[in-house]
Amino acid sequence: MTARRTGTGGRARVPAVLAASALLAGAGALLGGCGHSPANTASAGGTGRPARAQAPAGAPEATTYARLKGVPRDDAPDGATGGLVVHPAKAVPVLDKPGGRTVATLPAQQLGGPTWVPVVQSSGDWRRVLLPSRPNGATGWISGAADGLITAHTPYTVKVDLSRRRLTLLKAGKPAGAWSVAVGGARTPTPTGRTFMLATLAPATRTPSPLVLPLGTHSATLDTFGGGPGTVALHGWPDRSVFGKAVTHGCVRVPQDALDALAKVPLGSLVFIGA
């Protein structure tokens, strides 16, 4: 079952084997129950806000809701970086190559918090960054000299080993924690590749997880989920029996102590998901 599908509320159209679990179905509803951020709802079409008028009209905002066209794909999905991350204090154009065509706009905010994206390549003053939009592995070039671009360094990377169902947090390349986690089931696998910590959300409802840490990647088998765009996230789970199993819709469910540690990882930090 690799065809794209739509999961609504985690119940009706998720794979039967998963929907059979009341907990899982509940998770979809609970994690997905509150809808979108107003600021990002119409992101894919470009909001045309005056403050973000740098990019040509119609350039879509690179958010978790968007599907971008003409963006170069990540060609080094296993590649480590020096930990450089950037935050645009105001929206910046995203180009398909240094000095090339504008294919998107990277807004200053994602999901109510600051946008931080990892730099995966540099060419002169241009920085190639991972984007939080579909298709998975979307990248783009932004000007390193862009007005208001803030640069920082994160020592953290996260590795998710799908076959071992294990998440390892590394600080400066050294393990800072490792946990048995639940990963995507056979029909809704957790997508592999290089992505990043996109946001840290404290949902209104603390169950099943007091924190949800969306990544910059999406389910490859669910175009939407629970009314959302199928964003994959790291989050907690009350039932510890799931850890070590491939049972989720794509998210990575982690124990509470892992969630506590991951919540301190700066946004933009790379997450490597390997088969």
Binding site: G7, G10, L24, A27, G28, L31, G32, G33, C34, G35, H36, S37, T64, G83, L84, V85, L111, G112, G113, W116, T151, A152, H153, T154, P155, G184, T188, M197, A199, T200, L201, A202, P203, A204, T205, L211, V212, P214, S219, L222, F225, G226, G227, G228, G230, T231, V232, A233, H235, T248, H249, G250, C251, A263, K264, V265, P266, L267, G268, S269
Partner: peptide, 21 residues
Amino acid sequence: QRPVEAPAPKPVKHHDLPVTG
């Protein structure tokens, strides 16, 4: 400019994104 350490994230309260569970 030696990049500063990236800040620890601040949870965005009451902001829900339906994710893939």
